[in-house]
Amino acid sequence: MGTQHPLPILVTGGGRRIGLAIAWHFINQKQPVIVSYRTHYPAIDGLTKAGALCIQADFSTNEGILTFADTVKERASGLRAIVHNASAWMAEKPGTPLSDVLACMMQIHVNTPYLLNHALEGMLRGHGHAAADIIHFTDYVVEKGSDKHIAYAASKAALDNMTRSFARKLAPEVKV
């Protein structure tokens, strides 16, 4: 009887802060991990040395998102979970076009998980009832709003709603 190897958990934005802590948590649990990162930090070398598959990704364009998804599909046969942690924090401030702020926030917080969930859906399905997960990180500003980070708050609210929609679409195989 062969040994089943656990499927990896994909953590977007895993090079720093919460994403890095999440990646290390799973590595310490002997769980295979795939990490996306935008900028190379020394922590990436530590994750790689510990066995994580670290893939540089540019989520600022649809092409970058889909190229990343293709790389994941080439390197893994399935996924146990996707943890959408990649984020940006951009305030509305003088000198920055408001349309650029909104576009940036929607791209990273809504478009990236939307496209990745669709592109990687097949890697999450087929492992049994409730056997896979998608986790979207939102923010408390979803409920209260923000006077200085309006686009950020709006994008996180959109992600909150999108979470509910993907939960309906992917149940019962994938918990969202």
Results as ranks from 00 to 15, higher is better:
residue 23 A to P: 11
residue 28 N to T: 09
residue 118 H to M: 12
residue 148 K to G: 12
residue 15 G to S: 10
residue 91 A to E: 13
residue 136 H to F: 11
residue 74 E to M: 03
residue 127 H to M: 04
residue 79 L to M: 07
residue 37 Y to E: 04
residue 130 A to S: 13
residue 5 H to T: 11
residue 52 A to P: 05
residue 145 G to I: 01
residue 129 H to S: 04
residue 46 G to K: 12
residue 67 T to W: 06
residue 144 K to E: 04
residue 43 A to I: 00
residue 1 M to R: 05
residue 29 Q to S: 14
residue 16 R to I: 14
residue 156 K to R: 11
residue 172 P to C: 02
residue 81 A to R: 04
residue 58 D to E: 09
residue 171 A to Y: 02
residue 72 V to D: 05
residue 34 I to Y: 08
residue 3 T to V: 12
residue 20 L to R: 15
residue 146 S to K: 09
residue 173 E to F: 01
residue 95 G to A: 13
residue 148 K to E: 08
residue 155 S to I: 02
residue 60 S to V: 02
residue 85 N to Q: 14
residue 176 V to H: 05
residue 48 T to G: 03
residue 154 A to T: 08
residue 136 H to I: 11
residue 93 K to A: 15
residue 46 G to T: 12
residue 54 C to A: 15
residue 4 Q to P: 03
residue 103 A to M: 08
residue 79 L to C: 10
residue 28 N to M: 07
residue 75 R to H: 10
residue 50 A to M: 07
residue 106 M to E: 11
residue 94 P to F: 11
residue 6 P to Y: 07
residue 106 M to L: 14
residue 33 V to L: 03
residue 163 T to W: 00
residue 147 D to V: 13
residue 74 E to S: 15
residue 60 S to W: 04
residue 108 I to H: 03
residue 152 Y to V: 05
residue 20 L to T: 14
residue 74 E to I: 01
residue 43 A to R: 07
residue 140 Y to P: 01
residue 134 I to Q: 06
residue 168 R to K: 10
residue 52 A to I: 08
residue 29 Q to T: 12
residue 149 H to F: 10
residue 61 T to A: 06
residue 93 K to G: 07
residue 68 F to D: 01
residue 9 I to S: 06
residue 86 A to L: 09
residue 90 M to S: 03
residue 115 L to P: 06
residue 57 A to G: 09
residue 85 N to C: 14
residue 115 L to N: 01
residue 87 S to G: 15
residue 71 T to H: 07
residue 73 K to R: 15
residue 80 R to C: 12
residue 13 G to W: 11
residue 159 L to V: 01
residue 160 D to W: 11
residue 15 G to F: 09
residue 63 E to L: 10
residue 99 S to C: 10
residue 91 A to D: 09
residue 116 L to V: 06
residue 154 A to L: 13
residue 36 S to H: 09
residue 25 H to R: 14
residue 88 A to Q: 09
residue 133 D to H: 15
residue 21 A to F: 06
residue 24 W to F: 13
residue 20 L to K: 05
residue 81 A to M: 05
residue 67 T to K: 14
residue 164 R to V: 00
residue 126 G to V: 13
residue 154 A to K: 00
residue 82 I to T: 02
residue 142 V to R: 04
residue 135 I to V: 15
residue 41 Y to M: 07
residue 106 M to I: 10
residue 54 C to N: 13
residue 82 I to D: 00
residue 109 H to V: 10
